[in-house]
Design a protein around this nucleic acid. Structure first.
Lengths: 327, 327
DNA sequence: TCGAAGGTGTCAATGTTTTGTCCATGTATT
DNA sequence: AATACATGGACAAAACATTGACACCTTCGA
């Protein structure tokens, strides 16, 4: 808006939408899907709105609608269709599609691991970047980055990767996740989540992963680093009126102080602040979690459900977010 | 004054932006991307702001935008494009925190500290973001973020800030610095720097600061996280053919193992790989640094000089007279 | 069941525009 | 004298536009 249309080339549009240049042009010619301006040299100049429209069209065509019928609908109608689809089609994911997805995530992870092995961080980043288009932001977090981190840890413990690999990968992924968190652009009324690890837990990727996921799901997020004592976590949660505190438990699986810390944290936090915990080590501490009404979350999918549930039943009014970000 | 607004030659600009001199000139001629002053002898004289602008243009062209369309946009619009680049969904940037203009670095730091005090991370980030336009990237790193980190550490040790504040600020600044590191490869011929801290040194901001600075100065950078044993650092340096390994020494000032680690590292690294060290604790280890031909760097300005000197004497030859490029 | 028709994505050929690089020549700087 | 820089022109590669053709699929009628 404020700053007029930003000029996008057809190649950029192709990359952002996942449609080939050919298709974009032929759709324009046959169905007038979008009508970009032209430069003096007759090259197409697209706007952000065009990209959004094309993304929607792509999504709908992949779900079986024919482009010929979609093309003449206006943006409103497309949006309507998408939300309908989201409600219905989300569950009965055809097994075929699921298979291809896991196929592709597996392949992505393999390639990412190879990049780590060769210490080619730039390539690692490119792979992750490109994967967003294939599996979506949430898919990337839950089905690529999560397993990837797990994998690297495993390889490291088994001596097939060195500490150097693990450090490099962690630093790179941490930076990547940092970029995914949108610090702005959310209405101040969105609920807030604090992501961190309790004192003694040094591994930061889990917390960063939760932070990124929550951000993508429309939460405001405060990422607080690792190894924080209960008082400090509580301080943050209270100053920021957090609705949820998310803890990541990964490495020391037998730290005798963790149960104490969890109990103290529960005591220090106001009752309306929910506590959730995830990470490989949650099983080891399951007793302490149960005692302190800390909800265990086993994967990012479950995190999404839990956050959805926690989103509404709390204080004040119903959310008034203008547009639920597509995806 | 100082490093931030020295007159820059086209060659220096070329090194810092990764664009060839040819391209810089031809962009100027065809699109008026920047219009540098001229010296008496008609040579181009660039400012730090020009470098920032060119870096952004380069980044955007690499992402698929065409220079012909970008060149006429103003700084504001470029800025927006860049931030949109990260988040897939295009959104209007909020106009928050835009009012104040032209602050001294001291004022900026004060306001940033206040934001930390109030745990308003969004504001902290906005302040830093806005400061780029006011003091340039290098100025931001050397005169704002560096002192700010120092300040926060001090306040914390003196009990005026809690660990929570320090953690939040560290995480936020770390993310911010991560975004400043060029996500793409410069000319593959650009020299490479590895930034990390030796085993036992846990504070990561120093290393991240060095990484960001070197990146802005036109180096390819590998950020390797904290607390790495000498073997691992050496492994990375060799796989990547690093020209420089930069170590940050901050917190434990009396770790007896550090001198050993430094000696081992010097032994493990090829002779052509330079070692430099910075951070508050370098004085405490000065003997060990001297013994192992590790150059001590006291501030980011000095870092700039040292890197410029290390840039050219590529292979083989002994380093000759330190000729600071920036006249 | 078969074949025709229409819808859809991909490709090849050809010409134009855009953009990065290079060369030659002249001037300034060291 | 040896670099480093400026300028203009030339050139080549990459990206884009346009047209027409083709292969694959679904649908529908014979």
């Amino acid at each position: 808006m404020s700053l007029a249309d930003l000029p996008l080339s057809i190649r950029t549009v192709s990359e952002r939408t996942g449609l080939s240049c050919h298709v974009i042009r032929v759709w324009e010619k046959r169905y007038s899907t979008v009508q970009p301006r032209r430069s003096r040299g007759n090259q197409r100049i697209y706007s952000d709105a065009d990209v959004v429209r094309l993304q929607r069209l792509r999504r709908l065509t992949e779900q079986g609608h024919s482009i010929g019928k979609l093309a003449h609908l206006n943006d409103e109608q497309l949006n309507q269709l998408i939300s309908d689809e989201g409600a219905q089609v989300a569950r009965p994911t055809p097994t075929a599609e699921r298979a291809t997805v896991s196929q592709s995530t597996h392949e992505i992870i393999t390639r990412a691991l190879a990049a780590v092995q060769e210490m080619d961080l730039h390539r690692l980043e490119s792979i992750l970047e490109a994967a967003i288009l294939e599996v979506g932001q949430i898919g990337l977090l839950g089905k690529v980055i999560g397993p990837l981190a797990e994998n690297i840890g495993q390889e490291w413990r088994q001596g097939r990767l060195h500490a150097a690999h693990e450090h490099l990968a962690t630093a790179t992924i941490r930076t990547f996740l940092g970029k995914m968190v949108r610090p702005f652009a959310l209405s101040p009324s969105a609920p807030l989540l604090v992501a961190t690890t309790p004192a003694g837990q040094l591994h930061e990727l889990g917390a960063a992963l939760v932070a990124a996921s929550a951000s993508v799901l429309g939460w405001r997020v405060t990422y607080a680093g690792t190894s924080l004592p209960a008082e400090e976590i509580s301080r943050i949660a209270q100053v920021q009126s957090a609705r949820v505190v998310a803890l990541s438990l990964i490495h020391p699986e037998d730290d005798p102080f963790i149960p104490q810390e969890l109990a103290r944290l529960r005591r220090l936090l106001p009752q309306k602040t929910a506590l959730i915990a995830g990470g490989r080590a949650i099983r080891a501490y399951s007793a302490a979690l149960a005692e302190n009404q800390i909800q265990a979350v086993h994967d990012l999918e479950e995190l999404g459900e839990v956050l959805d549930a926690l989103r509404r039943p709390t204080p004040g009014t119903i959310e008034d977010l203008p547009t639920p970000t597509n995806e």
